[in-house]
């Protein structure tokens, strides 16, 4: 059997309730609209009750496993810093991590039994080529709803994937009810323009770590 040419692997992780499943779905539908083979893996049920959530999305000429192997992820959208650390082993050394800096304390930390790890961004940046940390929750609040942080992330990611913008529009329209589309499209556009606006260099030339505080 012929090995498929390059497959793109994206990890989306965070805490149940952050819109990770929806973001994964939009990304996968966009890949399908772009004419690619695509697989997406996630888990429902018990874990969604405020637990750690991870979605794997893979697309390319032909995709076999729905799960990404260790050190094979090209992109990680981490909706919560601790979850970036938890799934760091998935990252390829030439990968890109997007981190939302808004913490959500897990139960052992909330009750004072364990400490929330420090220096997450520096631990993560040692492992990857490119890391961008933003406060997506605050940015989403400024757009009008903290829940659209997921679309800000997708907007940023979109700059690195090369799908035409019309495909993203289609995917968002296919996955989000019409009453919620306007704010989600605004959040996506915000994310899509964010890096160029803040860093003033084209995305492909971004190397190293960028912490964008507001």
């Amino acid at each position: 059997m012929k090995l498929p040419s390059e497959t793109t692997n994206v990890i989306l992780c965070g805490v149940g309730g952050q819109g990770i499943l929806l973001a994964g779905r939009i990304l996968a539908v966009a890949a399908l609209e772009a004419g690619l083979d695509v697989k997406k893996a996630e888990v429902h049920g018990m874990a969604q009750r405020g637990g750690s959530v991870i979605t794997h999305v893979r697309f390319g000429e032909r995709v076999f496993s729905p799960l990404i192997a260790s050190h094979q992820a090209h992109f990680m959208l981490a909706f919560e810093p601790l979850e970036a650390l938890r799934y760091l082993d998935f990252m390829s050394p030439d990968g890109t991590i997007f981190i939302n800096q808004q913490k959500i304390l897990p139960q052992p930390v909330r009750v004072g039994k364990m400490a929330y790890p420090t220096g997450i961004v520096s631990k993560c940046k040692k492992r990857v080529h490119r890391l961008i940390a933003i406060n997506a929750t605050h940015n989403a609040e400024s757009i009008g709803d903290p829940r659209v942080a997921n679309l800000i992330f997708l907007g940023m990611l979109s700059r690195f994937l090369g799908f035409p913008e019309s495909i993203w529009q289609k995917a968002i329209q296919a996955c989000i009810p019409s009453t919620k589309q306007e704010i989600n499209i605004r959040a996506f556009q915000f994310g899509r323009d964010f890096l160029m606006r803040r860093l003033s260099i084209p995305e492909k030339e971004i190397r190293g770590t960028y912490i964008i505080t507001s």
Partner: peptide, 23 residues
């Protein structure tokens, strides 16, 4: 096979678990 290729320090032992909780 895996270990030889990626011999960085593990991060897993310091990560607090995030068990599911009551809403």
């Amino acid at each position: 096979t895996e270990k030889k290729e990626h011999s960085h320090e593990p991060v897993s032992d310091e990560i607090p678990p995030r068990p599911p909780v009551f809403c």
